[in-house]
């Protein structure tokens, strides 16, 4: 689990002496580099839970992190910098999605049926979960994803703009639906490593 919280906020600002501006920027750059490397995967995963259009997610990620760098002096002391980036990027995605929809209401891309997976390693397991998430409602998928990434219910509620009680309901609905999808795909027993049948995951 890759929980990133506002640990950088604990680092003191460098002393403000001569040529301090340059040194300060260098320190912020370094902090930002560490922050981004650690948080990038989490943010991307959570955004993908709602939006399957990778390009849109990439653009939103880039813009949100850039804005985080611009505002780094404030973001670094924010109670949850990753949460801030998620919220910022998410609004950009919602805005873009609405713009795209208004231009042309196209069918969601019909993905060709993916071949059945034999889950033997972490990558395949992740791939499988990623295939199932689009079959949840966007809110369920986002809540589930953030919760697996270590966010607390209150944080999730704040960043997604939903009620705190709803977070609990969305998560249990998400897990119920995922369990159903897993069983449909033949993953039911606690013991066997292999699925009962090589069914599609849909």
């Amino acid at each position: 689990m890759t929980t990133v919280d506002g640990t950088v906020a604990l680092n003191p600002d460098p002393p403000d002496d001569d040529g301090g501006a340059g040194r300060l920027k260098a320190q912020h750059d370094a902090e930002f580099q560490v922050f981004t490397e650690a948080g990038y995967g989490t943010v991307e995963r959570i955004l993908l839970a709602r939006c399957r259009q990778r390009e849109l997610v990439q653009d939103a990620l880039h813009e949100a992190f850039l804005h985080a760098r611009v505002k780094w002096p404030e973001v670094r002391v924010h109670v949850n910098p990753v949460g801030w980036v998620i919220t910022t990027a998410r609004f950009k995605i919602l805005k873009e999605q609405r713009k795209l929809r208004d231009e042309a209401a196209t069918a969601p891309e019909d993905l060709p049926p993916a071949p059945p997976l034999d889950v033997t390693d972490a990558w395949q397991a992740r791939e499988l979960v990623e295939r199932w998430l689009p079959q949840l409602s966007p809110r369920q998928a986002e809540v589930f994803r953030m919760s697996r990434d270590g966010f607390g219910d209150r944080e999730i509620a704040v960043h997604l703009g939903v009620a705190e009680d709803s977070v609990v309901s969305y998560r249990s609905a998400a897990i119920g639906k995922l369990r159903q999808l897993a069983e449909q795909a033949g993953y039911r027993s606690k013991t066997s490593r292999r699925p009962g049948g090589r069914h599609e995951s849909r």
Partner: peptide, 25 residues
Amino acid sequence: MNLDDILALAESQPATALEVARARR
């Protein structure tokens, strides 16, 4: 293998070298 096993397996490893390099870039 059931959902819990799959989720546990999916989260069993930290980011791969490839993912780390991507984040760095």
